[in-house]
Structure formats: structure tokens, C-alpha cells
């Protein structure tokens, strides 16, 4: 940590790490990035990024509604996100397709309600910053009293997903194999969807409801292009998310001294930009030895020629 701090002193404004909001942002940002990173790996492999986006849309309604009645927006994100997850499970969104249209209409209505809440909210409180906070994040204005709740929710979602990781992988490989081995596939999917909703809610607090899935999908998609095993993919995804978040915080803090003077650039912009850049960087990597499978195949082929029933597979070893 001190090494990092040393490095930061060169690239960032002095006072960065002594600022209370920055410390909170760094802590909450890390928790959010780690949770989203691990959860996101399964979102991508299960082909559920659409579900993630849907949860984020509904969470926006919850966050703006909470703001309207004077509650902490996290509770709004969380209650609506988890509620939407339960609803999606009931109508069977997990089984993909077919429900697209109905889901699209519902999401449109949810965002419409969010627009109304934000409008009413800004009318009564005359704080124009509030809608911006809900839509695009508030990592520098997190009240220290909500930090324990955010950290605890993140840890719970993380633990749940790590505990379910093998079962989730087996279900992604083949729901039939999983079911035949006694895995309650549908229940596992529902629990995962709730963990996803918690993760999206946290991400909405950090980088905003509109951008929350960027931190969920981006690092995971990047990690899945470079890491092989599932454990490594989750760890890589989490690390990418944390780096993007911390770099974003540093630059956002710094940007108070950039033009236009006196207006910092939004931290969410930097975080999402870094996530995007990391993803692009994976395309610069040379693809991993494409011939490998074919080499192995030729090694096994004498087996086929030896004729069925003969000492075929010993030839491959």
C-alpha cells in the first residue's frame, strides 16, 4: 500500500490520500470492483448480460424513487434490483429469448418512472446534482455511515458467488448434467440472479445506474479473453476492475485542475474509459497458439486407424 501511495504522489495531487471522501471512494470502489468482477465472470459465461442491464434499468427507478422520498439511494437500487431479479425468475427470463419484448416494455416503463421521480425530486429539492448522482454515480459523496452496509453487501454477494462457483460452472457447461447430478439448477440460477442484483446496486452507487453494468461486464469480458481457469478469470476480472476504479479516482481528483477549472470531470467517465481501454488491449495480444488442438489430434489419430475395439487409446498415451 505504501508503495502504491508513493507512486500516486507522483501522478496525483498532494492530499489525495488524506482526503476523507477519496479514502471512502477507494475502499468502496475496491469492494464494488471485486464483487462485480467475480459476479461478472458468470454473467458473461451464462450469457446474462441482458439480465444485468435489465436489473440496472429497474434499479434506476428504485434509486430515483428513494431519492424522491429522502432515503439513501442504495436501498432503492437494492430493493428494486432484487425485486426485479425475483420477477425475472418468475417469468423465466433466465431461459432467454421469447420474453424479450415483454421485458423491453417493462424496462421502458421503469425508466419512464425513473424520469418522473428525478423530475419531481429536482423540483422539490432544487439540487440539480441529484439526478446526475443517481444516473452517473456518486463515489465521492458516499456518506461514511453507509460504508459498512455497502462493504457488507458486497462481501455477501462475493461469498455467495464463490460458494456457488462450481455449481454455476457445471450448470453453464450443461444444465442437464447438473440436474442429473442433483443440482437444483433453477434455484441456483435464482440465487445467482439475486447476487447479480446486489452487485449491480453497488455498482450503481459507485459509477451510476446507467453505467453500472460497465463494471460488471467489461472487466469480466477482458479477463475471459486472457485467463484460462475459472479461479484465475475471477481474480483477473476483480483486479482489472480495481485498477480501473482506482486510476479513475486518481484522475478524477486530479481533474479539478483541468479545464474547465473548478469542475472536476466525472469519475465514472474515467473508470469506464479504463475498463474499455483494458478490453481493447486484449485484442493487441497475439491469439494463443491456434494449432495446439490439431497437434493433439494427430497424436490421437493412430488410435482411430488401429480399428475399433483394438488397442486404440493406448496409442495416444
Amino acid at each position: 500500500m505504501s508503495g502504491v501511495g508513493h507512486l500516486l504522489r507522483y501522478i496525483a495531487e498532494p492530499g489525495l490520500l488524506s482526503s476523507g471522501p477519496v479514502r471512502i471512494a477507494a475502499l468502496v470502489g475496491a469492494v464494488v470492483a471485486i464483487t462485480s468482477g467475480a459476479v461478472g465472470v458468470f454473467t458473461v459465461t451464462r450469457g446474462q448480460s441482458f439480465a444485468g442491464h435489465s436489473l440496472a434499468d429497474v434499479a434506476t427507478t428504485g434509486g430515483s424513487g428513494a431519492f424522491l422520498i429522502g432515503l439513501n439511494q442504495f436501498w432503492g437500487f437494492l430493493v428494486f434490483g432484487v425485486g426485479a431479479a425475483a420477477f425475472m425468475e418468475i417469468i423465466g427470463v433466465q431461459r432467454r429469448r421469447g420474453r424479450d419484448v415483454a421485458t423491453g416494455v417493462i424496462l421502458g416503463a421503469a425508466l419512464g418512472a425513473a424520469a418522473l421521480f428525478l423530475y419531481l425530486g429536482s423540483e422539490t429539492t432544487s439540487t440539480t446534482g441529484a439526478s446526475f448522482t443517481i444516473l452517473f454515480g456518486s463515489i465521492f459523496v458516499i456518506a461514511s455511515s453507509t460504508v459498512p452496509v455497502l462493504v457488507a453487501s458486497g462481501l455477501i454477494a462475493l461469498i455467495v458467488v464463490v460458494a456457488l462457483s462450481r455449481v454455476l460452472l457445471l450448470s453453464s457447461l450443461s444444465p442437464d448434467i447438473a440436474a442429473a447430478r442433483g443440482v437444483p439448477v433453477r434455484l441456483v440460477g435464482a440465487v445467482y440472479l439475486i447476487a447479480l442484483a446486489v452487485s449491480v446496486s453497488l455498482s450503481a452507487v459507485a459509477i451510476g445506474a446507467v453505467l453500472s453494468t460497465a463494471l460488471l461486464i467489461g472487466p469480466a469480458a477482458t479477463a475471459l479473453r486472457v485467463a484460462r481457469g475459472p479461479g484465475r478469470a475471477m481474480a483477473t476480472s476483480a483486479v482489472i476492475g480495481v485498477i480501473a476504479t482506482w486510476l479513475g479516482i486518481v484522475l478524477a481528483y486530479d481533474s479539478y485542475y483541468w479545464p474547465p477549472r473548478g469542475h472536476g470531470w466525472p469519475v465514472s467517465f474515467f473508470i469506464v474509459a479504463f475498463v474499455f481501454v483494458f478490453y481493447l488491449l486484449t485484442y493487441l495480444r497475439r491469439p494463443s497458439r491456434p494449432g495446439r488442438g490439431q497437434v493433439a489430434q494427430t497424436a490421437a489419430d493412430p488410435a482411430g486407424q488401429a480399428g475399433p475395439g483394438e488397442r486404440a487409446c493406448s496409442a495416444a498415451s
Binding site: V41, T45, V167, L169, L170, L173, R181, A223, P230, R232
Partner: peptide
């Protein structure tokens, strides 16, 4: 994009449930 190596898939056969 399935993040599984061959040995991960086989290991899931031991205790993937």
C-alpha cells in the same frame, strides 16, 4: 469464452455439484 480448461471440465466431474 467458457473459462474452463480441459482439466477444469474433468474436475467438475468429481464434485461440480
Amino acid at each position: 469464452d467458457m473459462p474452463l480448461r480441459v482439466r477444469d471440465v474433468v474436475a467438475l466431474g468429481i464434485d461440480g455439484n
